[in-house]
Design a protein around this nucleic acid. Structure first.
Length: 269
DNA sequence: CCATGAACCTGGTCGC
DNA sequence: TGCGACCAGGTTCATG
């Protein structure tokens, strides 16, 4: 579910709740939630580690302690939250206990998400390209990097090793705003549209963060709160409805293996 | 290098 | 009410 704005919302929520807390133990109810498969190391070393910081890169949540990094990915249905009580719920896959008897709980209906428990960040640094909100993602960077590839723009933007953070919803929104058809080959995109694309990536993501992300079905943060950016969507999920700009009907097609929403009148090659 | 489809999972919705 | 088919904010792997 979560793309950059949803992940940032989770980070913003957790930061004041868990920063400086001291960990006591780790409990797993679904073993494969630990991607690095080192739960015995984790159990042996977790006690008394303090949470130093919590941040984000791409769609990863980075919890830094004084000794290790706990690097979460929520995939489609992950829900990471702080709780003063240990609730009972069949979707809880693991939880971390703090020394003050409060908890960092991870739920995940589909079991796709999980975390790495590692000494450094190389595992994600190797996978991820430039962060979508990084200041160095500029018009000239995008121009250069779109021109030297020949890939469908939708698939390219889904590729986290190119730009990290965008996902299915925001890509469709950003391409609509930038009047680019999702099948356009990257090196054919007009400079005017690359300019728009640069600006719209930033503005859509910032605006969504301001609205706590987008909840379509499962996205939740904090205490069951949902994102309100859904009301701002122009194309995602709006197939069969009128385009907010030209009033023609929004189309849906499978592109790069994902349901893709676009206006064939407003978006061209 | 690139596109595509399957796999990893569970649940909700729609049509019959 | 029941059942099957299809769909879902993601990533990774195999195949052509």
């Amino acid at each position: 579910m979560p793309e950059l704005p949803e992940v940032q919302t989770v980070v913003n929520t957790l930061e004041p709740q868990i920063k400086n807390k001291k960990l006591l133990s780790y409990t797993t109810l679904w073993k494969r939630v630990n991607y690095s498969k080192n739960s015995s190391l984790l159990n042996a070393t977790i006690k008394n580690q303090a949470i130093n910081s919590i941040s984000r890169k791409g769609k990863y949540i980075i919890i830094k302690t004084n000794k290790y990094f706990i690097i979460f990915h929520l995939r489609m249905t992950g829900y990471l939250y702080y709780s003063k009580k240990l609730i009972k719920n069949k979707y809880i896959r693991c939880y971390f206990s703090f020394t003050d008897s409060t908890y960092l709980i991870y739920e995940d209906i589909r079991k796709f998400g999980g975390f790495y428990y590692l000494k450094d960040l190389t595992i994600i640094d190797d996978k991820l390209g430039i962060d979508a909100l990084d200041d160095s993602l500029t018009y000239s960077w995008l121009k250069t990097n779109l021109k030297n590839k020949k890939r469908q723009i939708k698939g390219l933007l889904l590729d986290q090793s190119f730009i990290a953070g965008l996902g299915n919803i925001y890509i469709d929104e950003v391409l609509w705003l930038s009047q680019i058809h999702p099948l356009t080959i990257s090196n054919k995109i007009k400079l005017k549209n690359i300019k728009l694309l640069t600006e719209n990536i930033k503005s859509v993501l910032y605006k969504s963060i301001k609205h706590h992300g987008t909840t379509i079905i499962n996205f939740k943060f904090d205490n069951m709160r949902t994102g309100e950016y859904r009301n701002k969507l122009n194309v995602y999920g709006r197939n069969g409805k009128e385009c907010n700009y030209c009033k023609n009907i929004i189309d849906k097609a499978v592109i790069s293996g994902r349901g893709t929403y676009y206006c064939k009148t407003c978006q061209h090659y």
